[in-house]
Simulated assay, not measured.
Amino acid sequence: MTTRHLGMDWLRIGAFGLLILYHIGMYFVPWGWHVKIDPVIDWVAIPMRATNSWRLPLLFLVSGYASAALFAKLGGGGAFVRSRSARLLIPLAFGIVVVIPPQPWIELMVQHGYRGGFVHFWTQDYFRFGALDGIILPTWQHLWFVVYLWVYTLLAAGVMVWFPETLRARLADGAARLLKGWRMLTVPLAGWLLIYALFPEHDETHALVDDGPSHLHYLIPFAIGWLLRVRPELFAAVARCWRAGLAIAIAAFAFVSWVEWNWPGKIPAPDWVGIPFDVARLVQGWAMIVALVGIADRFWNREHRWRTTLAEAVFPFYIVHQTIIVVAGWLLLRAEVTALPSFLTLVSVTVAGCWLFYAIGRSIGWLRPLIGLQRR
């Protein structure tokens, strides 16, 4: 594929935008997080579940697509690895050292009674390379996605370099045949269900080395995203089944919502609910991804004057957004601001803060690589 698929650009922009909105929701939902409104709001779990099962796999799918496009553009494994490493590892290091530290500091104060100021925490405790009240420091927090993506791109580069071109072509052709037609909807989902059957008790750790089932779960959409770039005929398979995928995702989400409504917050659900709930989330997740790719291909594959700016801005937004949310949420908690004003404030402050971070970073040459932008 030689032309840029603008629909996949818009899908990437939308996926990162939803991720930011999701993390704002984490301030209100009963699930554990760095800082929470008091009291938490049980029903917020239902709209959170609307994206919970597919938002991250979708990010890995669009990242796989973009990685394949970049590999084709650079024309070699060495150039690809250097480019990906610079664009991912430099902002990762900057994020760990500069952007992330307010998050564990606030969590330690709010949930563990830590009394040190931020400067003391950053200079004396943050770089301990060990645990402080059960929190491993330093930490990459939400930037775990960057770490995983870098590892997956190394794996992809290894395949592209070490496998002969004829073998790579056969593998891509075979995978395209396997995903042809309705199998685009069923085969990846079967893979997810198999991973769940083999590791039913696994919870994501985001620690890289002990997160094997999660890697298997995310490598499937990453590989399919890569295949969509190198075998664009797969978009025909998506076009065939995305409407059915949307209907299936809505039906699965209806069951997930029913469970959340009947057993909200910390109320335990009956044992029989566990497996159907998990399976419904997996079905919802992959079916919705297929539906969104189909919608992007059918309706969003067009230019707009904001596309280039937004496509460039989403990575800097991603780097800084959670720290803004945590800091603003902590200040709102201390001021005892109620739910609706807190939500409106978090949305406004996060959007404004992200734009400011991006605008400053993109205008200063030496800052650009630190926030994930190319040098001029």
Rank of each mutant, 00 (worst) to 15 (best):
H120A: 15
V119S: 15
L179Q: 03
M160P: 15
T186C: 00
P200A: 03
L185I: 04
G174I: 11
P200Y: 00
Y152V: 13
L198V: 07
P104C: 10
K180G: 12
V110M: 13
W192Q: 03
P188I: 00
L154V: 05
L155Q: 00
R170I: 09
V110P: 08
W122C: 09
T139E: 12
E107A: 07
L179P: 01
I96Y: 11
D203I: 12
Y126M: 15
R115M: 02
H112A: 08
P101K: 15
D173W: 13
L143W: 04
H142P: 06
L178D: 03
L167R: 12
F121Y: 08
V97F: 05
M109L: 09
M160W: 02
F118E: 07
L108Y: 14
H142R: 11
A172H: 06
V97T: 10
A156Y: 09
Y126E: 04
L185Q: 05
H202S: 09
A131E: 14
G113P: 12
M184T: 02
L154D: 08
E165D: 15
W140L: 02
W162I: 12
A176Y: 06
Y114K: 14
Y148R: 05
V159F: 00
L185C: 03
Q103Y: 09
G113H: 14
Y152R: 03
Y114L: 04
G191K: 08
F121G: 03
V159C: 06
E107V: 12
L178R: 01
Q111S: 14
V159Y: 10
W192A: 07
I106D: 06
G134A: 10
W105S: 08
V99W: 04
G191C: 14
Y126G: 13
L189E: 01
D133V: 11
D173Q: 05
L194N: 06
E201D: 10
Q111H: 15
H112Q: 13
E165G: 14
V119Y: 12
L149T: 04
H120C: 09
G116P: 04
P101N: 12
W105D: 11
F163L: 13
L137S: 13
L189F: 00
T153V: 11
F129R: 12
A169M: 00
F127C: 08
A197K: 02
